[in-house]
Design a protein around this nucleic acid. Structure first.
Lengths: 152, 152
DNA sequence: TTAATACTTGACTAAATCACTTGGTTATGT
DNA sequence: ACATAACCAAGTGATTTAGTCAAGTATTAA
């Protein structure tokens, strides 16, 4: 199972996008600052997210990224899959050749865990997260800090 | 989240131990052969399993390893924890300093996923696995192959 | 038209981790 | 004494992570 900062960054960034999407595209530099992610690293992630159809971009001054789908169409699993390739746990990736071309003793156990995790991550969307009070709170703090720095 | 071959090896090996424990200690070399794991790598894993009190050992000829607990006392989570240290997903490991000393936007999401996974793995023991028909089947095949090679 | 802004691509890298291997030492039953 | 099997320390090649760096291309406000 691969679940590292890459996937977490992607979810945080898309959630930031969803929270700040009002008519105008959101600039990656702002997302990077609010979410404390390296800009060039974020660019790589968004390139993947765009390839998978989760975001759209517009260039030039005033450009930036927007969600390509409604927030309730974007599950966490989809995001992680887009940047991380897989949330699979088994060595054989579902094929049953984990050991000497046979199933290993615990093949089915890992398949079950796979199912648990992916149904959990499939069941939660950006829309769900936006509704949450703890998410709202954190987002508000981030926005406040952002405005403090950029007013002059 | 760390869930690699290390954890899978440990579960497979302990299950093998449980399946072959009848009065005499089981030799690691046999486990290694049946489960297709490098012997010296297995030794390293069992050193950790022993430190965590999951197995006991006896040296010398006729020596080997045995389970130190009843099979229904050994959860999969315990095994993985013993060799893998953690099944934690969050960057901050439960502390809430994932981002600039604050919770990140998705802190609670990852904590929930943590809980799901660990309650799943806590809920399954070696005893449970031994009962399963698919485990019995695989074990039988492994034993057959093992005997074929060692009769002479 | 052009300068500035914004996105794109690809190569590179330090550090960490994985899945081992090598080469021993120590204890014990016969 | 000696074969056996656990125990231990250190090293290693391959891969992955989490980035950086450099050089672009596209768009548009002025």
């Amino acid at each position: 199972m691969k679940l590292t900062t890459k996937g977490r960054y992607a979810v945080n960034a898309l959630l930031d996008l969803a929270l700040h999407d009002n008519k105008k595209p959101v600039q990656l530099a702002d997302v990077a600052e609010r979410q404390n992610i390296s800009l060039t690293y974020l660019e790589q992630l968004f390139s993947k997210l765009k390839r998978h159809g989760l975001v759209s971009s517009s260039r030039g001054p005033g450009g930036g990224y927007r969600l390509a789908l409604e927030t309730d169409e974007v599950s966490i699993a989809k995001i992680i899959y887009s940047v991380d390739e897989t949330i699979d746990i088994t060595r054989c990736h579902g094929k049953q050749n984990c050991q000497k071309n046979q199933r290993c003793l615990t093949h089915d156990l890992w398949m079950e865990l796979n199912m648990h995790v992916s149904s959990f991550l499939n069941g939660i969307t950006l829309f769900d997260l936006i509704q949450r009070n703890n998410v709202k709170d954190v987002a508000q703090k981030q926005d406040f800090a952002f405005v403090q720095i950029h007013k002059h």
